[in-house]
Each structure stands twice: as structure tokens, then as C-alpha cells.
Design a binder for these strands. Sequence first.
DNA 1: CGTGAGCACT
Length: 592
Amino acid sequence: MLNSTLIGALPCTLAAPPPPPKMEINSMPEALQLHAQTLKSGKTQQKSLTNIFTFSALSSNGDLTYARLILHSIPSPNSFHYNTMIRAYSRSPDPIKALHFFLYMARNSPTRPDKFTYPFVLKSCARLGLSHQGKQLHGLILKSSFCSDRYVQHSLIHMYCACEEVGHAYKVFDKMSERDVVSWTVMIDGLVDNDRPMEAIQLFEEMVEDRVEVNDVTVVSILRACAETGALSVGMRVHEVVKEQRIGLKAHVSTALIDMYVKCGCIESARRVFDEISVNKDVYSWTAMIAGLASHGKCEDAIDLFNQMQELSIKPDERTMTSVLSAYRNAGLVSEGYRFLKTMHKKYGVWPTIQHYGCVVDLLARAGHLSDAEELIKKMPIKPDGVLWRTLIWGCKVNKDMNRAERLIDHLKSLKMDSNDDCGNLVLIGNVYASAGKWLDKARTRELMNKRGLVKPPGASKIEIDGAVHEFIVGDSDHPEAEKIYAKLDEIEEKLREEKYQPKLHEVLLEVDDEEKAFQLSHHSEKLALAFGLIKTNPGTEIRIVKNLRSCEDCHAFMKVISKKYHRDIIMRDRIRFHHFSNGECSCKDYW
DNA sequence: CGTGAGCACT
């Protein structure tokens, strides 16, 4: 019979023996010391070696020298050991090494890859955009028994999307016999990343129809799609789902909600979400809100918020700095913005990047300080890119300094640019020549674009009506209700003539007569979207339009007049900011 | 041992 006092004194009951002591390792030197001791002890201690190895691999930040050393001392490494190495490399700053190690394993060890191996190697293909290698892995997987493993399939979909091979991703997705929340989410998110947000929303609707429960990750992905397209009612539905299903307002979720409301034009709703989340606010949510206020022209509020953030000792990052600078830019606060750039490292510990210089060059250039802007580009410690030169040249065009613009164009042409910049450069150059009336040079630019197979991206505007997003391309007649839309535009023009509205013909950069210019202007995508909005919504309701390019001067003036004549508030997002038109005025005060 | 996630410059 057992002595009951003895049992009472025991730390554990006899029925459940204590687990073996876990080896706690806290630092790399400690791991190495343990390693040495283990080797000296002479006994084959696979378990301790494995622990030491795992710790050193996963805490290595990419330098796996020690981990490899320790791995070599393990008598017969198994797939777990190899997978740990590959996992560590796939997360490291140099993920190609995961593939190298995978090949090393395949060639030099009897250990075969297993279902855990593939997600890691596929991840590094995804991070590197290596679709060729990804496809080869896919081939290996198909020959193995792991092709039906859910995790492997999800990794494949993600890899293909990250390599811009949406078609292949779809194939894997479609072939899956059972899809869970991750299968849908990874596909939806991949579509958003590949600039196909409308498809992402469609897939989300299918997912809901299939009664698959969404989770926080799905919500974040779909909110990104809503933000991109301006699909406010979908976004609001998702917000309801978040509330009902008590999907926690993790920082990811609240940031995505804030950004969705911001980009759909509802800055007040964004602010409400921001103010409601008391705990889970991190630097990302603050930055999203600051950037949102800046893009809506509420620049003072943006700066206020940045100062509040300082008081709470939340450390800003590079993007926060960009948001603050864009607030200065949109407000035209030249000296404040310039001073911020100059002192940001000293005050906030963030070194200016090319984006920050970009904001300030734009700020200076748009305000007409073209020499200062040029000087800043020349003196900055970072090599200027195509964006930066285009910003400055655009500033010259806005301020009608054609001599400087042409000089800078010659300079731009002499630079060896990334070929990705070709299209943007030539479009801008063509615009500058055209607005200077140099039609021959404009024609040559056009020629050059044709020769290189470059196509100017057409203006496109989106508007959401009854939960469906409609997209209009400039001059579009594909819409089922195109006739009604053009009739509405005729009616509008008639009204504007009564108002003695003068179309801004100089915005048409084609060598055509004025009648043709007026015709061109009247079919800009935002006007088509606006006409459709006027037809489809009740009098007095707001109209929201999302445009892909900068607003043209004529459309801007047009929207102002309509807002008064038709008693409609119009909220238009263009490539760089928001315009709230109300009673004949715009929130940007005509400075954009 | 593994799948998917938020904010920035033209």
C-alpha cells in the first residue's frame, strides 16, 4: 500500500509520469556549447543533437553555417532535419539557397523529400518568382503521392500566383476535390496580387455560395480587392461579417478595413473604424489612416494623427513617413514638407528612401519650384529612377516651363532606363511635345512606341451600382446600356451649354480640330461612369468613381459643374488622390 | 516540421 503522504508530496501523480525534460536553448553560443558537450559525451544523442540543430537553424536569420555543421554531426539525418534546413532557407533573405539545399538533399542523401518538404521549396520559388523551377517541382509532386496533400496544393497555387501564372494556379485550384477556407483564400489573394480584383470578388461570392466559412485572412484579401475596385457595398458586407462572426479585429483586419473605406471614398467610416479599435492599433493601421486622410486632402488631420502617434511612442516606419510627406504634398506645404524630409532621420530614425524624395520632388515641382526640385534630384544620395524624372517633367508641364521640360526629356532619353519605364516615359514625353504644339516630335514618339510594341494604358473608370462594379474604358460602347449613357451625356452637354461651359480643349493632345477635341473629351471614361451613375442612382445620392489615371482638367471642371447643376456630391478617386465635388467646388481646391 | 494576410512615390 502506498503511503498517502508520500503521494501528496510528489509533484506529479503516479498515473501520468512527467514528460522528459525539454531542452531549453536560449542563445546561439549556448547551443554551440551544448553541441560540443554532446559530441564529447561520446554517446549518440540523436534527440539532443536534433534539438540543438533545430534551434540553430531556425534562429539563424539565414546564416546556416553552424546549422550545417551541426547537421553533419548527426549520424543519419532524416527528412525532418533536411526539411528544417530548407524551411530556414526559404524564410531567409536568400531563399534560393532552399532550392540549392533541396537539390543537395536529392543528390547526396538517401532521404527522399516528403509532404513537408514541398511547401518549403515552393515558398522559396514563390518568393523568387521562379515559375520554371516551380513547374519542375510540380512535376515531381505529380509523380509522388503528395499531389493530393492539401498543404502541397495550396503551396502550388500560391507559387503560381506569385509567379504571375494565374492560369496554372486556377488549374490546381479547379482540380482540388475538396476546398477549404485556405484553398479559396489563397486563390482569391493571388488574384488580387495579379491585378484581377474583380475576379477575386467573383470568387469570393462563389465561396460564400459554397457556404465555406471565411476567416480573418480571407477578409483581409477580399477587402484589398474591394479597396482596389471601389466595391464599397461588398466591403461593407464584409465588415458586417467581421462583426457578426466576431472575426477578431486583429491589426491586419482593421488595417484592411480602414484602407478599404479610405479607397472607397468613405474617409469618415475609415476614421470610425480607426477610432473604435482601441488595442490592436499598430504602425500599419496608423499609417493607413494617415495616408487615407492625406489622400482625401485632410492634411491637417493627417499631421495631427502623426503627432498623436508620436505621443504614444509608436515607432513610425518608412511608409508612415511617405504618408506624412504626401499630406504635405497634397496641401502644397512646401517648406514644411522639405523640412520634414531633411529632419526625418534625426527626429524619427528613418532614412529617406526614393519614395520620400519622390514626394518632395513632386511637392516642389507642382508648387512651381522647378529649379529646387531639379536640384534636389541631383543632390540626393540615391540614384533617381524613371518615376522621379517623370514627376519633375510633369511638374514642368503643369507649370508650363517647356524649355526645362524638353531639356529634361533629352536627359531622360540619354539615361539607360529599366525597360519597364519605357512606356511611362514615352507617354509623358508625347504629352509634353503635344502640349507644346510640337506635333512632329509627338508623332515620332508615337512611332517609337509602335515600333517597340508599347501601348498607352487607356483611361478607365469604375463605378459600383447595386453591388456590381461597372468599368468603362475611354470611348467605350461595349456596355449593355451604352445608348442610354450617351443619350444622358448629350443631355448633360446641353445643360452645360446653357451654363456657358467651355470644354478645356487643350487637354486633348491630338492634332485635330476643336470639334473633334470636344468629341474626344466628352467620351473620357469618368464621364461615362458619371452619366451611368446619374441614370442608375436616386437623385441626391452620392456618386463614387474610381479612375486609373490622373484626372484631366476638363473632367475636373466638368465634375464641379455637374455637382452643382445636378445637386450631387461626386467622390472621384484618381491615380493620386481623392476629389470631393460638392456644389460646384472640389476638395482639392483645384490643386492636384 | 507544413498552406493564405494589412499601410507608401508618377
